[in-house]
Design a binder for these strands. Structure first.
Lengths: 213, 213
DNA sequence: ACTCGGTGTTACCGCAAGTAACATGCATGT
DNA sequence: ACATGCATGTTACTTGCGGTAACACCGAGT
């Protein structure tokens, strides 16, 4: 029968694809985002053209690889965001989940954030398209949760999106810096960021004798 | 005399260096961060090896180029941060200054944020080193201002650094997203972000009938 | 036996980073 | 006047990577 044969082949191809992605994963974990196609092929025990047959080009492979990790991370974040607790606790849990993930596998995280941007075709002035899709997806996800659950009045939908992307960026930049310098424990970082979101910056008093802020 | 000759040469070299940087600037503005050394050399009316003599390698050139723009942007930000107004107004002015800059020259901004990361020598697990130095510098700068002027009690120094990097990341990610989709005016974006920093997320009420947030 | 589609290979192209070796102009010391 | 540096410039090369073309093998259906 034609269809069964088709599915068999597709299954086989899918398994192959997963094996290749796992090999690519190991190489990226070892060599960072600039892992070469040759290295990935060698790790998988095959040669370059096969990779190209499966993924089209390097961008395709990287996109597939990124999707796996991004999906996994987003699942964890959704779980933290949906936990039964009050708002502050859930925000802190989400921050902590993200920071745990990047702490556990910095190379992967680094790859996700800076996917070796090729794509010289997108000339013009449409920045942003290239930029880390993980950040965008996290931002949209968070925006959705905020927009769904908070009563922000008219224009609240848009406000939620700004906040979603803003909070994700805050989390990302602070995490990036923290991972490099380790100036404090993860718990302290989480608390500090939550405090920032809770308006402590606006509420803090000026230093005595200073010019004010 | 030896010294005068030396200085003459150095002046000439510096002028040359500046010319080369301006040429590189034009090419990056046109081709984006993936501009080739050949293209830059051609734009400057010379050939590759001269670039290498001046800047060592591509990373060196990019670092020099980034320093120029970064310094300029930081000067603007400092001015906005130091303006004589109340805290909210100054925060908004700073956000607006940054967003104006990236809006005016997205290619440059894009180059500054993702400097075509070479550097496969920094293997290991020290993420962050590679990441956009502009973000780091802005974060530290803001941290310093916050730490100097706000009374944050014990541990305030560290808190200020977390907040500095966090706020810069928020500004960056939101700006990146905004530049790509243009979902609202710049003024609205500024207001929304300032609202976020002023604790409106924590203060907002749950939507009626929802699961709460 | 013969084609056909999928899987695999070797060998190549094009291009960009980076380098070596050679050429030239211009000040200086004798 | 002439040789000596030294910076400035060039051509031509190597290396390495992304990507592709052409060919080889193998199992299934007619």
């Amino acid at each position: 029968m034609n269809t069964t044969q088709r599915t068999d082949q597709q299954r086989s191809a899918d398994r192959r694809r997963r094996e290749l992605l796992e090999a690519a994963d190991r190489v990226v974990l070892r060599d960072g985002p600039q892992a070469s196609m040759n290295a990935i092929a060698a790790e998988a025990g095959i040669t370059k053209p096969i990779l190209y047959r499966h993924f089209g080009d390097k961008g395709g492979l990287y996109a597939a690889l990124a999707k796996r990790h991004t999906d996994a991370l987003l699942d964890s974040l959704r779980a933290a965001l949906d936990a039964p607790a009050d708002r502050r606790e859930r925000v802190e849990a989400t921050l902590d989940t993200y920071l745990s993930a990047i702490e556990a596998r910095p190379q992967v995280y680094r790859f996700l954030m800076h996917p070796a941007e090729e794509s010289q075709s997108d000339q013009g002035f449409d920045v942003g398209k290239h930029s880390a899709p993980l950040l965008r997806r996290m931002g949209e996800e968070l925006a959705q949760v905020i927009g769904e659950r908070l009563d922000l009045g008219p224009g609240g939908r848009q406000l939620a999106r700004v906040w979603g992307h803003g909070i994700v960026g805050m989390m990302h930049a602070a995490g990036d810096w923290w991972l490099g310098e380790r100036p404090c424990s993860r718990a302290e970082l989480v608390r500090s960021l939550a405090d920032l979101l809770w308006g402590r910056l606006a509420a803090a008093g000026d230093k005595v004798g200073g010019p004010g802020f």
